[in-house]
Design a protein around this nucleic acid. Structure first.
Lengths: 139, 139
DNA sequence: CCTCGATCTGGACTTTGTCTAATTCCCGGA
DNA sequence: TCCGGGAATTAGACAAAGTCCAGATCGAGG
């Protein structure tokens, strides 16, 4: 799958193989994501899909990305500070996030070992390393 | 510092020791965070600080939390999907996030070793482990 | 060609956070 | 005590990202 050509036909099979009904809009959105092999935000997907003329609504883009997520076709990466928690504990530690309840608790840093990070980009410094284990209720 | 009593007077010293001018509002916000030793979101802080009657504006709460963050008094934990990236690569890997530019790139999972995670809470399953290394331009 | 469930749509709405111009606070000097 | 002025605070308008809903449309199977 990794080396396939990213054609719209192949997107249709990809969707079907993930138990997703391949509609025009879903195929376009999948094509936008996979042909670029980049991390895209919802509005970037919107922009790409509607380049020529408006074809796909905002609601559909959001619904489709959520569907792809459920079906394991894409991963979600949360990076931007929008809904943020402020933690008075500044000692090194990591976090366990219960998706259902929104509860956030600590994981002792001693339990986590991270090594061999690649060199940082030129002129960059580490602002923080955040390990967030996301858990939810089974089923 | 870890075992001090969380009085408003102590908050004032704590703020001064972090080079923060201790105003009424800042003391109340620090007290809310530290006396609870919990992860609080901005609107939770708002609610706590304005329990009796409205005393502190939204802008001040946000400004103050940002100030505390800069001065290293609190940490920021990003957990909730608000600004999200969708990643077509579902193979195990982690992420390098450049705060300034918003650019997001991959770190091969082979370069990162995470071990000794604690047992999950009863009835919980892992939804994902996200290691996000946040970097920014020096100075 | 029809039907009907699945999908899609525009647009109103919510949430979280930012911005700004005006006001208030408070400290240090006279 | 009074005053000046910079720091801090405020209300409220605004912005960005995402959700929701009722109606319109699509398209596969009969």
């Amino acid at each position: 799958m990794a080396f396939m050509h990213y054609t719209r036909d192949n997107m249709a099979s990809l969707l079907r193989s993930h138990d997703i009904n391949p509609t025009h809009q879903r195929i376009e959105i999948a094509y936008a994501l996979f042909s670029r092999q980049e991390h895209l935000s919802a509005d970037q997907v919107m922009a790409i899909v509607n380049t020529r003329h408006s074809e796909t609504s905002k609601a559909t883009v959001y619904n489709t990305l959520k569907l792809f997520l459920e079906k394991g076709l894409v991963r979600e990466v949360i990076v931007d500070p929008s809904k943020v928690f402020y933690d008075p504990n500044t000692r090194p530690h990591h976090h366990l996030y219960e998706v259902d309840s929104g509860r956030l608790s600590d994981i002792d840093a001693a339990h986590v070992r991270i090594s061999g990070l690649p060199a940082l980009p030129e002129g960059m410094v580490t602002e923080g390393i955040d390990l967030i284990v996301r858990v939810r209720r089974a089923q």
